[in-house]
Design a protein around this nucleic acid. Structure first.
Lengths: 109, 109
DNA sequence: GTAAACTACTTTGTGATACAAAGTACATTA
DNA sequence: TAATGTACTTTGTATCACAAAGTAGTTTAC
């Protein structure tokens, strides 16, 4: 589960930020999954500009955290990997987004 | 200088994000300096909940990048470290904030 | 028909980084 | 004058992101 914020002011909430979501590569992946609901590996490769190894590793990490569900199937004779957000992943992304927006919005200029 | 974004869509701009700013501890530090214009080490320790070593290391990194200026002086007989954002640091923070807000805003829900 | 190239990934190695613990150099208090 | 406190910095370690290499199969070229 995502870390629980226990801080009073906005900036200190960064202390409790969910690093799993915060990492730019994974933030990209999660944001895509957040809007499209389900995507395959190839789609994410194209959208994110990550390498195969890199994307694979990040997916594994998100899967281990229970943030994404990975479904492997065969399309014809080729393997095909489908990704989708779990309820937990969706919640974690929402929380991250809220916190981050609050931090960035509550500043002058 | 902060990395230049060269991407077309919003989410891909995360590929070029300035990691020096992105790190939560430093983001906190920069945000404080962004609003107060100048602060001492002790103030930041209290506000950020970082350890001495941790804050020290992050400050060094920000200084090396030219994002903050560090001024050491003696107050009475005690050492005193003052921090302030450089123009470059201010610009980097602004760029980061803009990019990040755009990424987080341009999503449904 | 088999060798070379391609697809769709995963695993491994390496260098960078964040963090805590220990260290330094003094000043103050008991 | 010994112990404690202040204001840091340096060092060690464990984690992590990334790229390069590896794997398992499929398609194409000759």
């Amino acid at each position: 589960m995502p870390p629980k914020p226990t801080r009073s002011n906005d900036l200190q909430s960064l202390t409790d930020i969910d690093k799993l979501v915060h990492e730019p590569a994974r933030l990209m992946i999660l944001a895509y999954l957040y809007v499209v609901e389900s995507a395959d590996f190839i789609f994410l490769i194209r959208q994110t500009d990550l390498t195969w190894g890199n994307l694979s590793a990040h997916i594994s990490k998100l899967e281990a955290a229970g943030y994404v569900e990975v479904t492997k199937e065969f399309v014809g004779k080729k393997p095909h990997t489908m990704l989708s957000l779990t309820a937990e992943g969706r919640a974690a992304f929402r929380t991250y987004r809220q916190n981050m927006k609050r931090v960035l919005d509550d500043l002058p200029d």
